[in-house]
Every structure is written in C-alpha cells, then in structure tokens.
Design a protein around this nucleic acid. Structure first.
Lengths: 253, 253
DNA sequence: GTGTTTATCGTCAGGAAGACGACTATGATC
DNA sequence: GATCATAGTCGTCTTCCTGACGATAAACAC
C-alpha cells in the first residue's frame, strides 16, 4: 500500500467532540446538547462539530468550547486558570459505522471547567444542559421517565465514559482538580471536587494534610471565607505545580 | 455551524502512524522506515499508512504493524502476550501544515514489542530498521555523520517523543513492561527493561522485592535460566494483573 | 580453587497514609 | 446569650512502602 498517495486516498469527515466536565451540587456533570436533526434526533449528544479546512484540531476544540460555553480554553501545556477551562485531547473514534451517514472520524477532547451559570446553546443545538454523568451513562436504567434515560447519540456514551475515566485518573497525579474550582477556593471545596469526581468520601483531616503539605500545589491568598458555613476557611489559589508526587491516593479501587 | 452535514464537509485524509518500541542491547529502540518518495525522500519516518474506507482505526494500526514487523497485535483491552505486541492508541496529529501536499490527520498508535529479529520492510518502504530513540530524536546533534542524525520526516519526531513519554510513564503504574520481554523472562531481564526505558539504574534487590511482592504481576513458570550469566534465575510469565498498585517508582525525575 | 557475575534474602531507617482524637471559629436555634 | 451544628485545622499512632546496603548462593571462566 502506497502511503500518502494524493491521487487515491479515501476521504473522511473529521470532527471534534467535547467532553466538558464540571462539578455542580456535589455531582460530576457533563455538558450535553439535544440533537435537532437526524440521525438520533431529539437524543442527547456531546457538543462538537466539523474541523475546518485550515484549522488545527486543538483550535477546533477550543472554538467549539467557546461556542458552547463561552469558556476560554488554555493550551494543554500552560495550565493556568483565569476564566478558562483546561482542555486536552482525549482520544479518536473512527469506527466505520459510528455515523450511519458517512465515514466520520471524531477527535474527542476533554475540558474541565469550574461550575458555570447555565450553558449557552450553540447556534445548531436547540438546547444544552449540564447533566450528571451517572444519569447520562445509565442506559435505560435507573433514571426517572426522563429523556435523560435514553442513551446518548452515536458512540458518545463511550466517549463520555472514557473522558470521565481520564479525569478520574488524572486528578490522582496532577493538580488538575483545581480546574474544577473557582480562582480562589478552600481546601474543603477542593476536597468536595475529589469526592464528586471519584464518588467517594475522603477524610477531611488527611486530605488537608496532603494538599497543604505538597509543595507548589496550593498557595494561600491570605483571605478567608465562610461560604461553606462553619469555621472560616483559608482561601488558596492553584500553585505552579502540575504533577503531584507522591500522588493523591484514590481509596480502594 | 451545522454538524454532520453530509453535503458540505471538508474532506481529510486519515492515516495511522506507528511508534513501535522495543529494547535491544539495553537501549530503547523504535522502528523507522526510510521514505522512498517525496516529500522528505530519503529521510527516516515512522511506519504508517492510510486507513481504508471500511476499516476501524485500531484495525488499521494492527494491519500496519503486521505489515512492518509480522507481529500480531492484541486488543488494548486484552493485554495477553503470545507472539504479539501491545498496541494502543496514542494521540492524533492534525496540524493543517503537517503534510505539505494535503490535509492529513494521523492517528498515532503505540506498540510495545519484545526484541525481534530484523524488521521486515513493507512493500512501500525500501528499508526499515530499529534505531535507538535517542539517536532518532537527537536532531542534528551528537550522532555520527549518519543519516540518523537528520530529523525524522513530518512531525514524526513529536509523535515519537510523545510515544516514548507514554511508554515511560505507563510502565510505572502498569505491568506493560512485560510487553518488552519474551514470554518467559527473569526478574533481571525485566529490570533491564525498566532501566533501558527510563535510562536509569535500579537497585536489583529492591526491584526484585517489588516485582515479586506485587500479587498478580509475575507468576513463576518453575524453570530457570542462566542466559544472562551468573547464578541461575527463576523464569516468570506475566501475571494477570495489569495495574500496579502501588506503582513502580521512577527515581528522581 | 579463585575470581567474577548475577540472583536472592534480610535488615534497618525514614517517609507517607489511614484511622481517629481534639480543638477552633463561625452561624443557627432556643 | 447559651447551646448546638457545621466545617476547618492541628496532632498522634500504627502500618506499609521504599531506599540504602550487607550477606549469601549458584553458576561460569581461568
């Protein structure tokens, strides 16, 4: 087989799909849009769209993220967090039958965002919402008789599942959990992020010792807050460290 | 922008490129093929080729792997090791200018193989060889006046670098290092794999304690060998465990 | 036999994490 | 204003894991 033969290559459509995760009311939620057209009309799907002819993959993902959420994405290599989300490539899905109409290869990206106001619907999707990932992935199961109980369109359940697993494992050994927090946050708020993403309860005392004892993870801003009730808590910003060594240990599993 | 509009999508070429790694003579090596045609004619590149119209991405990668090495690839989810290599998706590269002729999106895959006899050249590549990754990535640097000192074609240096980094980090927390070993191997041989991939020296006694003390990592076959010289060493096969918990710690960095 | 090489077992100190007690500083309630 | 509930913060103790390194074992080369 002759590689890169410009005269005879099978044409593909290339899209980006986004797994946008946030933590709302102690639950890990993903952004879902309702499809307005066939196939899978009326079903929920991940936001996404075609890559433009002269657009890089990461640029396409960032553009879709802005269109859907208004979030400004940061480069994967500069994990600063201003009013933006963390964005990284997740994986690529190219089963020949994943789209019944034509051959579509989708480069999925993962975005982590702090809790936001209502999502803004893109021009093409007639509605968008944050939904708990458990509900989105519970296929036909436990959900109320809600449109949420229907499976996601295309192979988006698989993509979402892979994105959630990436997020779950990545907060173990990186400081990425701070991407779910506002610019200033307390140790307790960060702990609730871990608890929501992992679905477990963590010991507040050991967690406090761990995160405050890891150099470069958190830097105190000097302020305090009582927005969570109880005794006032110190406010922190994310420090420069991106890798946690030793990592945060996820209980049992 | 209307997603999945079959009447108006920009056509892309989709390829798979392979980072095939092995350990030869205590060095981490990658499979490189010499390009027989323009662009980058005569330069070294990663093996790869077009995805066929009705072929899944992983199937295309497995096919290319067989064509280049004769290795039978295993499914990423069934990490058994018979006469086959570990194969997993690495990342996707889609810079609009990465191929000067047309828009090509390449889904790179990472393969880990035991030390093999000479690679077999595919029909399209006039030569193929194992080369130390250090030499392939040393752009214009230290190499002898060898064709190896020229940078790899396209963005393949970046792809190879990402693949090597993935391998380096993945053997920390998984049993994947056994994919570099023959079906039966000794603790010392496994240690030399880690040393070659990480480029460090490990304490033989602590390494032995770690790998033999991790349940499911190694299972003794009962046999022994002296092929490394010295006192006879027990032979092991890879156990069922795929995740190492706690992980193997990489010194310093 | 002596030396060299590799494998394997053991010991010890230091660090990190889980379990959990205790105290502190707010707001809510009586 | 006293009491209570809530959340945050500091310690202690035990256990496990790792790194450093001594010691022994079993082959081969001479």
């Amino acid at each position: 087989m002759s590689p890169y033969d410009p005269s005879a290559f099978p044409p593909f459509a290339v899209t980006v799909d986004l797994v946008v995760l946030t933590v709302r009311r102690h639950a890990l939620c993903a952004l879902a849009v309702r499809r307005g057209e066939s196939p899978f009309q009326g079903r929920w799907a991940l936001p996404g769209g075609f890559v433009r002819p002269d657009e890089d993959l990461s640029a396409a993902a960032a553009r879709e993220l802005v269109e859907e959420t208004g979030l400004c994405a940061h480069d994967p290599d500069s994990p600063v967090q201003a009013n933006g989300a963390h964005l990284e490539q997740l994986a690529t899905y190219g089963d020949p039958k994943r789209d019944p109409r034509m051959r579509v290869v989708s480069v999925a990206h993962l975005a982590l965002a702090p809790d936001l106001p209502a999502p803004r619907a893109g021009g093409d999707a007639n509605s968008a919402r944050w939904a708990p990932v458990d509900a989105l992935l519970a296929q036909g199961g436990y959900g109320r008789e809600d449109e949420q109980a229907t499976p996601l369109a295309f192979d988006h359940a698989q993509i979402l599942s892979d994105g959630v697993e990436r997020a779950r494992s990545k907060i173990e050994y990186s400081s990425l959990a701070t991407a779910f927090c506002p610019p200033e946050f307390t140790v307790g708020e960060l702990r609730r992020v871990y608890e929501a993403v992992w679905g477990v309860a963590l010991d507040p005392r050991n967690f406090h010792r761990k995160v405050t004892g890891t150099p470069g993870f958190l830097v105190p801003t000097g302020g305090t807050t009582t927005r969570q009730g109880g005794r006032p808590a110190q406010l922190f910003r994310a420090g420069g460290a991106t890798l946690l060594n030793p990592p945060m240990l996820r209980p049992d599993v």
